[in-house]
């Protein structure tokens, strides 16, 4: 087959440790049908030789589900932050440039430390407490239309692509970013989660919260799951406005 001779070119930004200098390394590897960026990286791992024919260390990256639901394999592919599992080689312009997402600290090569995002989820209490000292019984039912709507928000996989695209998430600010904000809206929307709404709203209007959004609306453009992030942010803005008017002169209870 003619295909046998086809190769793919990749330029990968590498970094040996969190504090070391970055450098670029070029790779040329045999093309196979239906390859994605991950299978190309696996090929490099199998045979870690760069384009100059020198033996090198295998490129390090993170992956999990391989079907765009875990978010672990996010990286900049030809400048666009996305998951490498659903980035098909045949649909990409060559040479394929891979760089780690630069909003997050690099651990090694393409693997980044996404703790900033997970810490934000903790900060805004993006969960619904359901455990008690005794059986609390089944949760309240939810209207089907609302369940379908909130299901869209639940598709977030904390991949970090929205934080990568946000101009206000950077080392100069402690903005928690769009992902955590949208999760607040999700958990505020369920009958059980709603009981802790005031705690989440307090966190969301606290330091590094909602107010840091600069409305560049990049997040909603880049979200691989099509989550209406800017609508969530605007809705939280409305909620925060109503709350601030309600307790303008102080209040003895929280909404």
């Amino acid at each position: 087959m003619a295909e046998e001779n086809k190769t793919i070119k990749m330029i990968i930004q590498r970094q040996d440790s969190p504090d070391s200098q970055t450098y670029e390394e070029e790779f040329e590897l045999p093309h196979r049908r239906n390859m994605n960026v991950i299978s190309a990286l696996m090929e490099i791992r199998r045979n870690p030789v760069n384009a100059k024919g020198e033996e090198t260390t295998p490129v390090h990256w993170e992956m999990g589900c391989l079907e765009e639901v875990c978010g672990a394999c996010s990286m900049n592919i030809n400048g666009v932050p996305r998951q490498s599992c659903t980035a098909l080689v045949d649909q990409l312009e060559q040479p394929i440039r891979l760089t780690p997402m630069d909003t997050f600290p690099v651990i090694r090569d393409l693997a980044v430390d996404r703790s900033r995002m997970f810490d934000s989820l903790k900060k805004v209490k993006a969960w619904t407490p359901i455990d008690g000292t005794h059986d609390l019984g089944p949760g309240e039912r939810m209207p089907e239309s609302k369940r379908q709507w909130s299901y869209e928000l639940s598709k977030c996989m904390t991949c970090g692509v929205c934080l990568e695209a946000c101009p206000n998430v950077n080392s100069k600010s402690n903005f928690i970013g769009p992902a955590a904000l949208s999760q607040v809206r999700l958990h505020n929307s369920t009958p059980n989660g709603e009981m802790h709404k005031s705690e989440r709203m307090d966190a969301v209007t606290g330091d590094g919260g909602l107010q840091n959004c600069g409305n560049s609306q990049n997040c909603v453009q880049v979200c691989p799951k099509g989550i209406p992030l800017t609508t969530s942010i605007a809705a939280l803005n409305r909620e925060a406005t109503v709350n601030s008017f309600k307790s303008f002169f102080g209040s003895d209870y929280n909404y």
């Binding site: 400048g79 695209a165 101009p167 206000n168 950077n170 100069k172 600010s173 600069g214 409305n215 560049s216 609306q217 990049n218 453009q221 880049v222």
Partner: peptide, 17 residues
């Protein structure tokens, strides 16, 4: 405190930002 990135993400709203 912002780090503009509209050359990388050239969406209308990002340019407005």
């Amino acid at each position: 405190t912002s780090s503009p990135n509209s050359f990388k993400f050239g969406y209308f709203r990002n340019w407005m930002f």
